[in-house]
């Protein structure tokens, strides 16, 4: 059992306040959807938790099983069991996918995986996400289509098996087929019931494939409403307008 507890988190970017006191708790076995309009601070929440240097924490705590992640470096947070699937994964020239994945798995597990087992895990993971085998030899994210990048993020999720996964608009830019493949990957990951998922999205579409237990509406840098899956349906029908007005 793991718990990610975000307490009164306040974050600024270049002296501009973005998050104004976020409170949220994600436990193993739970899937939380964070929904909100563009510019509401959803991605800031994701990157601040992961420790991106651009974001300055001005208050609050982010506890993973009681330990404050904010005291840790980016890589220490990942090794502690946090994973961030990025909305725009960067291209890293000269670093092959297989080399990158092996380095990441080695770092997170604390020891190098046996080569044969790793090759098998990688092949199975890639097959399940309909990723071509030749991908392993390509440079990290270089020349990948939007859909390929997102599938590759989910491949990492499945290989690294974090305690808590934050998925930042993983559904954006995907066609229906790709969305289905990616959603199946997320569902495989959460099937064990031992992991928590914080799914950030602008649209309700992905929630038809990845059913959330809780839905939080984000506006103006904080959670303005929470509920069950029915809240997503309400948003689908009514949009974000009432929240953007309220927070403005």
């Amino acid at each position: 059992m793991s718990t990610l507890e975000i307490r009164d988190l306040q974050v600024a970017v270049e002296d501009k306040e973005i998050l104004r006191g976020v409170n949220l708790t994600v436990k193993s076995g739970e899937t939380h959807a964070i929904m909100g309009p563009n510019g509401s601070g959803k991605s800031t929440l994701a990157y601040a938790i992961a420790g991106h240097p651009k974001y300055t924490i001005t208050g609050g705590q982010v506890l993973l099983d009681g330990a404050d992640l904010l005291d840790l470096s980016v890589d220490e947070r990942a090794r502690a069991g946090l994973f961030l699937a990025m909305q725009y994964p960067v291209e890293v020239p000269g670093v092959s996918v297989s080399n990158f994945l092996r380095s990441a798995v080695t770092a997170v597990r604390g020891e190098a995986p046996k080569l044969r087992e790793f090759a098998k895990d990688l092949k199975n993971g890639m097959d399940a996400l309909s990723i071509d085998a030749a991908f392993a030899q390509r440079n990290l994210n270089e020349g990948f289509s939007g859909g390929e990048k997102k599938r590759h993020e989910i491949l990492q999720l499945e290989l690294l098996k974090p305690k808590i996964a934050v998925l930042d608009e993983t559904d954006s830019g995907l066609d229906v087929d790709a969305l289905r493949v990616v959603s199946e990957g997320i569902n495989r990951f959460r099937a064990s019931g031992e992991t928590g998922v914080l799914l950030i999205t602008h649209y309700t579409r992905i929630l038809r494939y990845v059913k959330p237990d809780f839905v939080h509406v984000f506006a103006g840098g904080r959670v303005v409403e929470q509920g069950g899956p029915e809240l997503a349906e309400k948003l689908e029908a009514e949009g974000y307008e009432q929240y953007t007005k309220a927070s403005a």
Binding site: S73, D75, A78, M86, P89, V90, G94, S103, A107
Partner: peptide
């Protein structure tokens, strides 16, 4: 950042790049 976010320590991330 991307490499570190996957658990790879800073020095090793630099080395990889």
């Amino acid at each position: 950042f991307y490499l570190q976010a996957r658990g790879i320590p800073h020095d090793e991330a630099r080395r990889l790049v």
